[in-house]
């Protein structure tokens, strides 16, 4: 497969996953904001900006931090390179270039998603209809992944698509988990209180893990359990361990002339997660752990890009 084609397939999947994660974060955040006090409201609103590193861009356009303005910025602003709008457009444009190397169902799904994206009425979808919009994004992403899984040959295109999806998901889960550090408490021991419960519950819901948590732990929401679930539990499809397992499997199925560095790092990261211990992670500091993980996953992405997909 041509490197350029591999690159487009990889980023097509990556951008669609990014759109989905953004919808998850925004959806949960808007619920949290509704039940937060004025003091914590701003911190909560800042979370999506912190996660995507777009605080500065937001304030270049808006003076006030408000829910509708933030939603509009993160969901519909074509000039915001992290917005859902931008991600869906990028996913579709990448697909357009390789529509002959992917299945027609995949192309048609992304093309239809893009056409529909453009037809949303911005005022209402950034306001009262926001939840419906976020659900729609998630559904389209589920559909795209399902169509991909159900139609494409298990060849290079499939593997690079998976690499894009799971690199992006690992990145997003780590960032979402790290948000607690930014918005809530300086120390993870400082738990308790009703508000805190809602925020931890919201975090779990944003990665579709609330019910799973209940089933596994049958207990109150303790940060250390949440972290264990989202970092180390391979059964949880959005956890770091699950993502790295998928990445490692996909990498094992592609061959390149100079891909040793990428494969080695992937194996290393996966091994660290398989043998990881949550108490040890907490002793070293969750934030420090996640910061290092984000750097590693970024490096892995770079190595995959260099090994197979050509320069960015």
């Amino acid at each position: 497969m041509l490197s350029r084609v591999g690159d487009r397939v990889f980023w097509m999947s990556r951008f669609m996953e990014r759109a989905e994660n953004m919808a998850r974060i925004l959806g949960v955040m808007s619920n949290v904001v509704l039940c937060s006090t004025p003091e914590t409201q701003e911190q909560n609103l800042l979370a999506p900006l912190t996660i995507t590193g777009s605080t500065k861009n937001y304030y270049a356009l808006h003076e006030q931090l408000s829910l509708p303005a933030l939603t509009d910025f993160m969901a519909f602003d074509a000039d915001n390179e992290s917005s859902i709008y931008t991600c869906i457009k990028a996913a579709r444009d990448n697909a357009h270039e390789v529509r002959w190397q992917i299945t027609s169902e995949m192309w048609e799904t992304l093309n239809a998603t893009w056409l529909e994206m453009r037809s949303f009425r911005r005022e209402s979808s950034a306001g009262p209809d926001a939840t419906r919009f976020f659900d729609w994004v998630k559904e389209r992403s589920h559909l795209f992944r399902g169509v991909t899984y159900g139609t494409i040959m298990r060849g290079e295109a499939f593997h690079f698509s998976r690499l894009g999806t799971f690199l992006e998901r690992a990145d997003a889960t780590a960032r979402i988990l790290d948000v607690k550090y930014h918005i809530l408490l300086p120390r993870v021991e400082d738990v308790g209180g009703a508000l805190d419960y809602y925020q931890w519950a919201a975090l779990l819901k944003s990665v579709s893990s609330f019910e799973t948590y209940r089933t596994i732990y049958r207990d109150q929401i303790y940060p250390i359990n949440v972290a264990e679930l989202l970092i180390l539990d391979r059964r949880m499809p959005r956890s770091l361990a699950a993502c790295l397992e998928q990445i490692d499997q996909a990498l094992a199925r592609v061959d390149g002339q100079n891909d040793h560095a990428a494969k080695r790092l992937s194996a290393e990261l996966q091994a660290r997660l398989v043998h990881g211990d949550i108490e040890e992670i907490f002793r070293g500091g969750l934030h420090e752990y996640l910061t290092e993980f984000l750097e590693d996953i970024h490096e892995l992405g770079q190595r995959i890009q260099r090994a197979y997909l050509g320069a960015l």
Binding site: M1, L2, S3, G6, F160, V254, G256, Q257, N258, G310
Partner: peptide, 16 residues
């Protein structure tokens, strides 16, 4: 996608 090396034309592929 194409480049010249040793008086031959090659393409950049994921496998090399």
């Amino acid at each position: 996608d194409l480049f010249v090396k040793d008086a031959q034309i090659y393409m950049h592929a994921t496998s090399g």
